[in-house]
Design a binder for these strands. Structure first.
Length: 565
RNA sequence: UGGGGGUUAGUCUAACGGUUAGGACAGCGGACUUUGAAUCCGCCGGUCUGGGUUCGAAUCCCAGACCCCCAGCCA
């Protein structure tokens, strides 16, 4: 997690531009050196990798500066927000490792205060009730190049406005019939300043306040004031709110309340993926994925299910850095950090995904040997386990070729290879079925090579993973790959769904696992040797084991295969 | 053709007028290897363009190009 020592107060070199600002503010004594940040998700969907980045950034900056970090649900639009999402967001953030120390707030906590402030602005002549319809409002707003026009209601008296506003609150007016607008400048080049809407009348039940309110604050009216109430010092948000900062500042100034500093950063896109809420929702709604937690999704729920670890996500987010330029991060980068973390902690196990039978012809009938196998070569303290070896085994079908090309050095007729942790075997005979398909290999083992070394010093070119047939556990293994073949599915005119990867999920329903995998639980970091990192799916049951591939091992063999040599 | 941002290798990022423009990821090559993994070593490759200031410019100035965001009673 972020514990960047290079960002102590006054120190700016090496720090990103936001941390430099925070450091400068601390050393200049602004806000008495306090640092308070917040993460303000709207509970209208599931969190994804981009939210992880944003939340970790605000959380990290608070921690590095011995400050506070608040979680605040931005629940100002009851028509699309639900408790289900609040619960999911909370769970995701906890899983990520964020600790808001009980400071879990809601914009709706502040509805009463916001309303009182609205009346104050009305009294001060800085807000008015407007009777323009939505369509009229749009036309009065002007365009990017032409100024807007004042609302006919703009100069209504404060008393009348107050009466109307109270009526709005009381439910005396139909949804859409009136709005409360800030009285700023209809000729402002920044459209956000053209008398923006503060309150709209909504006929909806709020997930927390129920039917207590008929009016709901807009984002602009709620956000800065919520920050102010919480004493937020540095309010971090993404670039599209840069245009809103003058309005953010205008409101807190007009109210004369605590004035947080809004700082905007660029979010990122991941290659071969979509991040926008709208598109992610469409994947779910149209059934292109199994749900919000489909392991192919970059939702935190999906990534958790897939087997991604919060540590890897945090390392990835820290590495992406903070800037204001558009960025598309290569998926390989995420995978790198995931491999790096799992390599250090994953238990090595053997699993055969696409099995080919091997009979050891000279193995003493009925005998079972138990061979010690290292759990994690990167962590000797993880110890070892024993794997059973018998005369009938499964190996990976890919690990045998009847007529191998030059650089294939796994098993082939007449060739000797090592079975990991076990013995050298030599392939004597290939058994085929009526269709010519290889169904069994008959091999001879060398008893002197027990453990995997030949006393005579002879070498083999390959080491294969294997599982003893009698003791093996059957499982379904799911191989996940990028959801999109196109690098940037969101770009270009074509429908982003055209870029869907038809092979993003490959089932291996007949996999065989070594017995030690019987008690693996969801969340346990596991490497299937030579294949990749895998995780137990939450829906896995003892009688129907199910594993998900998090990410494959780097594979120099298959990478080089397509290249001319 | 209004306003607000942005532009350093394929990707992300560092540089704070003085570095042979650094690092990571990707790619390529090699060493090692009981995971074709990991590890180690090496290579490839960059300052948007054009002027100017300066002994010296990615950095400062001028002009231009290109990209992103904004016309919800969404956030």
């Amino acid at each position: 997690m972020a514990n960047d020592a290079s960002t102590s107060p006054g120190e700016t070199r090496g720090a990103d531009f936001i941390r430099q600002i925070v450091n400068d503010d601390r050393s200049s004594g602004r806000w008495q050196g306090q640092v308070v940040t917040r993460f303000p998700p709207e509970p209208n969907g599931y969190l994804h990798l981009g939210h992880a980045y944003a939340s970790l950034l605000s959380y990290g900056i608070a921690r590095e500066n011995a400050g506070r970090f608040n979680l605040r649900f931005d629940d100002t639009n009851p028509s699309r927000e639900e408790q289900e999402y609040v619960d999911a967001i909370r769970a995701d953030l906890r899983w990520l490792g964020l600790d808001w120390e009980g400071r879990e707030f809601y914009a709706s906590d502040y509805f009463e205060q916001l309303y009182a402030w609205a009346e104050a602005l009305v009294r001060a002549g800085k807000a008015f009730v407007c009777g323009l319809t939505a369509e009229e409002l749009r036309s009065y707003r002007g365009t990017l190049t032409e100024p807007g026009r004042n609302s006919p209601d703009r100069d209504r008296s404060p008393d009348e406005n107050l009466a109307l506003l109270r009526g709005m609150r009381a439910g005396d007016h139909a949804p859409g019939s009136l709005t409360l607008r800030a009285r700023i400048d209809m000729a402002a080049p920044n459209l956000n300043l053209r008398d923006p809407v503060m309150y709209r009348i909504l006929d909806a039940t709020h997930h927390r306040t129920g039917d207590a309110w008929h009016i709901y604050p807009s984002y602009d009216w709620a956000h800065g004031q919520s920050d102010a109430i919480e004493g937020v010092t540095h309010s971090l948000c993404s670039l599209e709110f840069e245009d809103h900062r003058p309005l953010y500042d205008w409101f807190v100034e007009a109210l004369g309340i605590h004035h947080p500093r809004q700082i905007e950063f660029a979010r990122f896109n991941l290659s071969h993926a979509v991040m926008s809420k709208r598109k992610v929702r469409r994947l779910v709604d149209e059934g292109h994925v199994s749900g919000w937690d489909d392991p192919r999704m970059l939702t935190l729920a999906g990534m958790r299910r897939r087997g991604y670890t919060p540590e890897a996500i945090a390392a990835f987010c820290a590495d992406v850095g903070v800037s204001k330029r558009d960025k598309v991060i290569e998926l390989a980068r995420l995978e790198h950090f995931q491999r790096q973390h799992l390599n250090a902690i994953a238990s090595r196990r053997m699993a055969v995904l696409d099995p080919l039978r091997v009979v050891i012809t000279n193995w003493p009938s009925g005998q079972v040997d138990h061979l010690p196998a290292v759990n994690n070569p990167e962590a000797p303290e993880a110890g070892s386990r024993e794997v059973p070896f018998t005369g009938e085994l499964w190996i990976e079908r890919d690990d045998f070729m009847e007529d191998p090309p030059r650089k294939f050095f796994r098993l082939a007729p007449g060739r000797e290879v090592r079975l990991r942790y076990a013995f050298f075997i030599t392939c004597d005979e290939v058994v085929k079925d009526a269709d010519g398909r290889v169904v069994e290999l008959r091999c001879r083992y060398d008893p002197a090579t027990r453990g995997g070394d030949a006393p005579d010093g002879r070498k083999v070119k390959a080491t294969l993973h294997w599982v003893s047939a009698a003791e093996a556990l059957r499982a379904e293994v799911r191989l996940y790959d990028r959801l999109f073949v196109s690098e940037q599915p969101e770009e270009g005119g074509a429908d982003f769904l055209d870029g869907l990867n038809p092979d993003s999920l490959e089932l291996r329903p007949n996999a065989w696992l070594e017995p030690a995998l019987a008690d693996a639980r969801p969340g346990d970091p596991i490497q299937f040797e030579r294949l990749g990192y895998f995780a137990v799916d939450p829906e896995s049951r003892p009688e129907a084991l199910r594993f998900n591939r998090v990410v494959g091992l780097r594979d120099g063999w298959s990478r080089g295969k397509g290249q001319p040599d």
